[in-house]
């Protein structure tokens, strides 16, 4: 099978067409722009819209379980306890999407096979199950605080926008296993950072039991990150050394 690193007919560089590109460059060099200035005009438009616009949204009101939430929130001894709920919801959204991401990678592995030093099906399945478990951990955490775990909070919303490119890479039938693992690496880097912050928040808010659960999750995430990082590196090294081709 063709590898992306095989030499082929990629036409995107300017060097592909020496004659046409010469014309293109010469014509461009003679450009007289229709307006003076530089990129700063774009920046000032962005600044103008940013200063006039509201925000993407806010946290939901503590709905049906008002009393419970209120008391829990007061117990948190934080000036703005909604920050913790927002971050929990962000992680929840990410773990739920992460579960689906591992399903996509598993399908990719089943279709294309792995490589020396690449993932096994069992390991991917294990990581998948851990993402699912983390989703449940976060759901319980939110529920225990009287919050609605289905609410799409502002941070959860933004995290989903961030992840959208990863989902595209993972599900494109033309991407290779190493290419999808690179997307997964981006996800796992974010994941580790996210859990790190949750542990810090939970601890500082006096949620010791929760912080313990989160430390368990964090250990799993550190394992995910280390493995995915290694799989990506192993492939690049073998490819560079011409040792690819033998499926694991």
């Amino acid at each position: 099978m063709k590898e992306p690193t095989d030499i082929g007919m990629n036409r995107t560089g300017i060097g592909t067409s020496p004659i046409d590109s010469k014309e293109l460059i010469e014509a461009a060099e003679g450009t007289v722009p229709s307006s003076e200035g530089d990129e700063s005009g774009i920046a000032s438009l962005r600044m103008s819209y940013a200063s006039e616009s509201g925000i993407v949204g806010t946290m939901p009101p503590p709905s049906s379980v008002k009393g419970a939430v209120k008391s829990v929130l007061e117990g948190l001894a934080a000036k703005n306890p909604a920050v913790f709920l927002d971050k929990l919801a962000e992680r929840l959204q990410f773990e739920r999407t992460g579960t689906r991401m591992y399903e996509s990678v598993l399908a990719k592995l089943d279709a294309l096979g792995s490589y020396d030093g690449g993932p096994t099906r069992e390991t991917l399945q294990e990581f998948h199950d851990e993402e699912l478990e983390h989703f449940h951990v976060l759901r319980s955490a939110l529920e225990s605080m009287g919050a609605d775990p289905t609410a799409l909070t502002p941070s959860a919303d933004i995290a989903a926008v961030e992840a959208s490119g990863l989902i595209q890479v993972l599900n494109d039938p033309r991407t290779t296993l190493p290419q999808t693992l690179h997307a997964l690496l981006v996800a796992e880097l974010t994941d580790s950072e996210g859990w790190d912050m949750l542990i810090e928040l939970a601890t500082s808010l006096g949620h010791e039991a929760m912080a313990d659960d989160f430390r368990d999750a964090m250990r799993a995430e550190e394992k995910h990150l280390a493995h995915v990082r290694q799989w990506v590196a192993n492939h690049a090294m073998q490819d560079a050394e011409g040792r690819l081709g033998q499926a694991a």
């Binding site: 959204q93 739920r96 999407t97 992460g98 579960t99 689906r100 399903e103 289905t150 609410a151 799409l152 989903a160 992840a163 959208s164 989902i167 599900n171």
Partner: peptide, 10 residues
């Protein structure tokens, strides 16, 4: 739900 892990009810 199955592609992105999102709830349509949002």
């Amino acid at each position: 739900d199955r592609l992105e892990g999102k709830d349509a009810n949002a």
